[in-house]
Simulated scan of single mutants.
Amino acid sequence: MALLFVGIDPDTEETTCPAAWVDIDMKPDPDLLFQGWLADEATQAECRRDSPQPESEAVIRIPYRMIGIIRKACDAAEQAATGKL
């Protein structure tokens, strides 16, 4: 596994922060990985109404201020998928 670190929440405090990576070894479709705050039970229940949530998945919150970082992660994943990274 080769993870490309894209960035962390620009307003992070200490070592607990939302972050984004791209698994550039996943060919032909690189995966995006996100670290975020685990959503509360009410939010998870609401999300399950639209999409069942198996035990291997979690609903996480990513702050709005990370939109640019998420765009960079998407761009990096596309570049890795096309061999341009």
Rank of each mutant, 00 (worst) to 15 (best):
C47A: 14
T16A: 09
F5H: 12
A80I: 04
I24W: 08
Q44H: 10
A73D: 05
R71V: 15
V59K: 00
K84F: 09
A42Y: 09
L33W: 14
I24S: 09
V59L: 01
L4I: 06
C47W: 13
D50H: 06
C74E: 15
Q35R: 14
V22Q: 03
K72F: 02
A39Q: 01
R61A: 02
M1E: 02
T15I: 11
D31F: 05
D29Q: 09
E78R: 06
A77E: 08
P28N: 12
G7W: 10
T43P: 02
E46T: 15
A76C: 11
I24A: 04
P52L: 00
E13K: 04
E78S: 10
I69C: 10
I24K: 07
Q35L: 13
E57H: 12
D75F: 13
P54T: 08
E57L: 09
R71C: 15
I62E: 05
G83W: 01
T16P: 05
F5G: 08
Q79E: 13
L38H: 12
I67R: 11
Y64H: 09
G36Y: 01
S56V: 05
Q44Y: 02
R71E: 15
A39R: 00
I8V: 15
F5Y: 13
F5M: 12
K84D: 12
P63Y: 00
A42V: 06
Q35K: 08
Q44N: 09
A76D: 09
E78T: 07
V6Q: 02
M1I: 01
C47F: 13
P10E: 09
L32V: 03
S56G: 09
A81P: 07
W37S: 12
D50G: 04
D29K: 09
I69G: 06
A20S: 11
E46P: 05
R48P: 04
C74H: 11
A45S: 07
D23W: 09
T12R: 13
T43K: 01
Q44F: 07
V22A: 00
T15C: 11
P18K: 01
E14L: 11
K72W: 04
V22L: 05
A20Y: 11
I62Y: 02
A58E: 14
P28W: 10
R61P: 02
D50I: 01
M26W: 10
K72R: 01
A77M: 03
I70D: 14
A2Q: 14
F34A: 04
P52M: 06
Q44C: 09
P54Q: 09
I67D: 15
D23C: 13
A80E: 11
W37R: 07
F5C: 08
G36R: 00
C74A: 08
Y64P: 01
D29S: 11
W21Y: 07
A80M: 07
E46H: 10
P28E: 13
D29P: 06
I62F: 03
L4M: 11
A81Q: 13
R48W: 08
S56P: 01
D29F: 11
E78F: 12
D75H: 12
I62S: 03
T43M: 02
D29V: 12
D50K: 03
E55I: 06
A45E: 15
G68K: 00
L33H: 15
T82V: 04
A77Y: 04
R65W: 11
A73G: 05
A20W: 10
I24T: 12
